[in-house]
Design a protein around this nucleic acid. Structure first.
Lengths: 255, 255
DNA sequence: CGACACCTTGAAGAGGTTCAAGAAATGTGG
DNA sequence: CCACATTTCTTGAACCTCTTCAAGGTGTCG
């Protein structure tokens, strides 16, 4: 089976050798609405273009950054799919999120000038490198950019509130249903199918994110399939009854 | 019993009638190191003072803000103790954090211009109201303030990563031990005892935060007491063996 | 094509929840 | 200041969900 990439942007033929083509024109990027502020003047747009210093390719399975590394830049995902995870002193691991095209990673590093989690590519990926001091300088001059940065950080805080609600009060089926609906909704916003998706992560990674063991994830997928809510073939997933999944999420443990 | 305030700042006698005394001099505030950037010039400090528009008193049990309300300001806690909680569509509730003097609440509202959680005072409290546009303007001119705002938001993201780790991978005893150590550490940073504390929240609120039922919280307290790790008399708590609590947190489920 | 990682399923077990009852603290009003 | 109502906390017992351990199946990549 051929791999379906999460992002279908035209792969451009920029050679890493040429520093010119390494520059990215945010103003022309299909993902602009996702990762850049709207309502900029032509002049402002041009300056924001300079925000992206370089692009960087990240091979599947390798890290964009790791816990403990110096923080210098935020990264906007152009293509590919990432997980972020934190590690406790005792070695315990927790996936804190899955990120796709147009989303920003690296915010965790600002507070201490060091990254405090790992960002690992789950498929070959490319990111825009945005040096954080440059973001600071530019957002001092462009109000819309400043507000945009604040909104991105606030959005991440709110997202994590949602995960806390999920981890703190939902049962396994509710967690997995919420996870699937969230994933497919984000993919749909990027032009993909509302009903079909390819999971880029293992059952174990899903389990880590949802606070469940991989066996529970697998069993719950099977149950959803038995009940006719989804069709599961390994990582290929088709949502048959989204409404039923929504009911599961909003039913407060069976009440 | 008279209430022990979490914060022991001298209560000043400002009358709400007089707009002058309502102004707060951050430059003189004991909490400055907690909620304000360091290394400002005298002139900058003076301008930052103007950040705080007013103060606001919040009676125990009432909300500083609620989910859905318009977002205008961030709030720096001067005295008192808060919880923040999100509510799902089905009415499920999740405490997302407990905040004390020197900490900032309201960051959740930036992304959508509406608050997305409730902030409720668990004891009579007073906050500094900092209009968000003014923060924006001022941080455009004072680089240290800009960076400070970024750091506060990043710190919140990192804090929530920790909570996700707790909720996703720890057992009841580990969660409660981590919770107690965190609480006492933050109180100690504010000049309180390293070993004694008064819980300002109910067992149910602790449980909600930790993803446990109140009975489990109660039982786990009792077990800690039986094992000689803590002394529990209602909400009055004394930590006897902090090292043992730390071992519980770092032991990865009994391994 | 063979090795390895990943996934599924079963059975037994543990940890936490639920339900229930009573005790302790807190607040209220006489 | 004391009696009473209310909220909060504790503890027990039965139950349930998820985990653990184990084995076999499936898919993928060199």
């Amino acid at each position: 089976m051929h791999s379906i990439t999460v992002n279908s942007l035209p792969s451009d033929s920029a050679r890493p050798v040429d520093p010119h083509t390494m520059k990215v024109a945010c103003s022309n990027c299909n993902l602009r609405e996702l990762c850049m502020p709207v309502g900029l003047s032509a002049e402002e747009l041009e300056r924001v273009d300079e925000l992206v210093a370089t692009r960087r390719k990240v091979k599947r399975g390798t890290a964009l950054f790791r816990n403990g590394e110096a923080f210098n830049s935020l990264f906007a995902i152009r293509t590919g799919f990432f997980k972020t995870c934190v590690t406790a002193v005792d070695g315990r691991d927790q996936v804190t999120g899955f990120q796709m095209a147009g989303e920003i990673v690296g915010l965790d590093g600002i507070v201490s000038d060091r990254h405090t989690c790992d960002a690992v590519a789950l498929e070959d990926a490319e990111v825009c490198v945005m040096p954080f001091d440059r973001i600071g300088e530019l957002s001092r001059e462009i109000g819309a950019l400043q507000h945009h940065v604040h909104r991105i950080m606030s959005r991440e805080i709110v997202r994590e509130h949602g995960v806390m609600l999920l981890l703190g009060s939902m049962r396994a089926e509710e967690r997995l249903a919420a996870f699937l609906l969230n994933l497919v909704q984000r993919l749909h916003a990027r032009g993909f199918s509302q009903t079909e998706l390819v999971l880029r992560m293992t059952r174990e990674e899903i389990g880590s994110y949802l606070g469940l063991k991989l066996e529970t994830v697998s069993r719950t997928f099977s149950k959803f399939a038995d009940d006719g809510l989804v069709e599961v073939r390994q990582r290929h997933l088709r949502i048959i009854d989204a409404q039923a999944l929504r009911r599961i999420v909003n039913q407060q443990g069976g009440a």
